[in-house]
Design a protein around this nucleic acid. Structure first.
Lengths: 224, 224
DNA sequence: CGGCATCCATTTTGATACTG
DNA sequence: CAGTATCAAAATGGATGCCG
């Protein structure tokens, strides 16, 4: 691999030499919400064969973007995690996500797969630091068997797969409602009102939840 | 083209369905510094054949990211320009560039091509809005036959191919010096001192030039 | 010069079968 | 599970030739 290079002395081109191949950025996207096992990755990325997945992971390892490690005992299952360099791809991926939210994200197509983790990353993409000024809260999201937490700390957000240690508030929401929430411009308040979501915990934390995420108004590309 | 899709209801995946194919983002990068002719694009992107270039351009047109138009008379030459949707890919491309500047950009490889325009986009990538507070200035850069301008206006920057209308300052610099400047962490002041660059124009504008661009400290991916 | 069509060698990928 | 091996289909790169 990686014999095919753009051969340009340009930061963008060199970055794309490393992560521009098919599936690679989506692989990084998966790892951005926490370490994942080989099988988890395969299940999240339909169409990516096991051979190519193994090759991509090896490539990311060799290039210092990810590493293979083991979960702490007693689990000990092998997982893939991002290195510091890999984690720092987050701004680029979130920028791609913001563009996509604005310019591509209408209805869910009939053949399209969906995983809750993608939306959790979406929350990070539309997080508004100014709206979170002075807020310090941990939210736990439960979506169809999966659990995520988001830790807000005065303008910063950290969102990962897994349960929160000490959640200030817990939100349970259906997969479909969640998909609609970032796909069309819905809000948590609406989801709660319609019964598609339930929430419990600190009232102040829940009250501020809505303003934290500012979905860009959707636009059509065919106009301009 | 574009029969190959990730089929994921995810903003990042949908974006990559549109611009994730080989060459596409580099094509957008070229157009971010202004409209370009077919031949200009071909010359900038070595390895991209005319057939694939034509196909990619059509794809960008069909998807509403670029459009084919004509330069105003008397030129009338056909050029490709970004639409609003295309322009808005800038944050994502600049994020990729910033990552590349930090994690990939050592020495220039022997086989690597280089074009001044890439560096001009690099300036945009490392532009520090806070350092430009209260500054309103237009700079013209002359690099081996090519001319670019950067218009700074209180925290915003606009950088395009072409001469400035009313430059406050003009900087002439060699292609190699420019490459070294964004590749290794050089500054304009050093380039001027070493004679690799010349500058003229408003003294205040020139004095503030250095602080405007903050190259991230280079890091090795093999450490972490 | 701009741009499309064609042919062909090489890579990349997708899907599946197979092994520890 | 995790990962390899294998093979068919698709995408790419490069060279040309053509046409307005």
């Amino acid at each position: 691999m990686e014999q095919r290079t753009y051969n340009q002395y340009c930061a963008t081109a060199r970055t794309l030499d490393l992560v521009g191949e098919r599936w690679t950025l989506l692989l990084v996207r998966e790892l951005l919400t926490g370490p994942k096992r080989f099988g988890d990755l395969r299940d999240s990325l339909r169409g990516l064969g096991t051979g190519l997945l193994a090759a991509r992971l090896k490539h990311l390892e060799r290039e210092g973007l990810a590493r293979k490690t083991a979960l702490p005992p007693p689990a000990r299952t092998p997982v893939y995690a991002l290195t510091e360099a890999g984690e720092e791809l987050a701004p680029a991926i979130l920028a791609l996500a913001r563009w996509g939210l604005k310019w591509t994200m209408g209805e869910r197509g009939p053949a399209e797969t969906f995983h809750p983790g993608w939306t959790v990353l979406g929350l990070r993409a539309v997080f508004d630091p100014e709206a979170a000024a002075g807020l310090r809260a941990v939210y736990e999201f439960r979506i169809g068997g999966e659990v995520f937490y988001a830790r807000i700390d005065d303008g910063t957000i950290e969102a990962q797969h897994g349960p929160a240690q000490h959640p200030d508030a817990t939100i349970t929401i259906s997969e479909d409602a969640l998909a609609a929430l970032t796909g069309q411009g819905g809000t948590f308040a609406e989801a709660l009102a319609s019964g598609a979501a339930e929430a419990s915990g600190d009232a102040e934390a829940l009250r501020r939840l809505n303003g934290l995420f500012r979905l860009p108004p959707a636009r059509s590309r065919t106009s301009s």
